[in-house]
Simulated assay, not measured.
Amino acid sequence: MSEFEMTKTVAAPARTVFAEASDLSESSRWMSPSFHFRVEEPPAVTVVDPPEHRGEPALVRVEEDQMRVEWGTRGSGHYAGWLQVEGTEEAPSEVIVHLSFFDEDQAPPRRAVEDALRRSLDRLGEIVEGADRD
């Protein structure tokens, strides 16, 4: 099993961060282009993996009261992940993303995953920090 986790502090209130992070229909605004959700009938989604654009059925659960989003593949059980926002109504907040790949042979290279997580969290931070100034 391969596990990855990354944390970012952002200068925005936790609810602002969670509202952006949990809006699955807008996830392409901040998620890595190598990973995004095609929203279906919740909690079902398809995780689309460019460049092949193949989709894998997945489930997503959004826990507003816990400011947490969890997802995982259906059927194949290849991977699962979660995103947690921590903080208060005051800035800053902390965003934690965790990914687990259960089959070592299916796991992407560590550097690629870490780079994608870093870029995604940086974009999320830019979006919510800009929204908080508006």
Rank of each mutant, 00 (worst) to 15 (best):
P92Y: 08
H78S: 15
S25T: 13
V48S: 06
L24W: 06
D105N: 11
A19G: 09
P33K: 03
A80S: 14
L124V: 02
R119H: 11
G87Q: 06
D103V: 14
E70C: 13
E63T: 11
S76V: 15
E89P: 04
E126P: 03
T9I: 12
A80Y: 06
R68L: 15
V47K: 01
I96R: 15
G72P: 07
V97I: 14
R68K: 15
M67K: 07
P109L: 05
L117T: 03
R15E: 09
G125D: 04
W30N: 04
P51V: 11
D105W: 02
Y79H: 13
L124C: 02
E56H: 10
L83A: 05
E86I: 07
A14Q: 03
A80W: 05
Q66L: 14
R29W: 05
A19K: 05
Q66I: 00
S28C: 03
S27L: 06
S27M: 09
D65M: 03
R29G: 07
E63A: 13
E126A: 13
I96N: 12
E94G: 05
T9A: 13
E20I: 08
E70V: 12
L83R: 02
Q66P: 01
M31L: 14
V62N: 07
V17W: 01
S25K: 14
M67F: 02
R123W: 02
A12Q: 04
D115R: 13
H36L: 07
M31N: 10
Q84F: 05
H53M: 13
P13V: 04
D103H: 12
R74K: 14
V128Y: 02
S27T: 07
G55I: 06
P50Q: 09
D115L: 10
F18L: 05
Q106N: 14
R54S: 09
W71C: 03
P50F: 06
L59H: 11
Q84D: 12
P108V: 05
F101Y: 15
A91D: 08
R29N: 14
S100V: 15
A80E: 15
P33G: 06
E90C: 03
F102L: 13
E52R: 14
F37V: 06
V39G: 01
Q84E: 14
T46D: 14
L83V: 07
D122P: 01
D105H: 12
E52A: 15
E104Y: 09
D103Y: 15
G81H: 07
H36Y: 15
L121Y: 08
V48T: 04
R54L: 13
A44D: 11
E26V: 00
R15L: 08
W30S: 00
G72R: 11
A12W: 06
P13N: 11
P50E: 08
A107G: 10
R38Q: 12
L117E: 07
S93G: 04
A11F: 07
S93M: 02
T16M: 04
I127V: 09
V95C: 03
R110Y: 10
D65Q: 08
P51K: 11
D23W: 00
V95A: 09
S25M: 06
L99M: 12
P108W: 01
Q66R: 14
D115H: 10
W71K: 02
S34P: 01
K8H: 09
W30D: 03
E104D: 15
K8S: 10
R61V: 13
W82S: 12
P50T: 03
A21S: 09
R111H: 12
F35D: 04
V17H: 00
T9L: 04
G87H: 00
E86H: 11
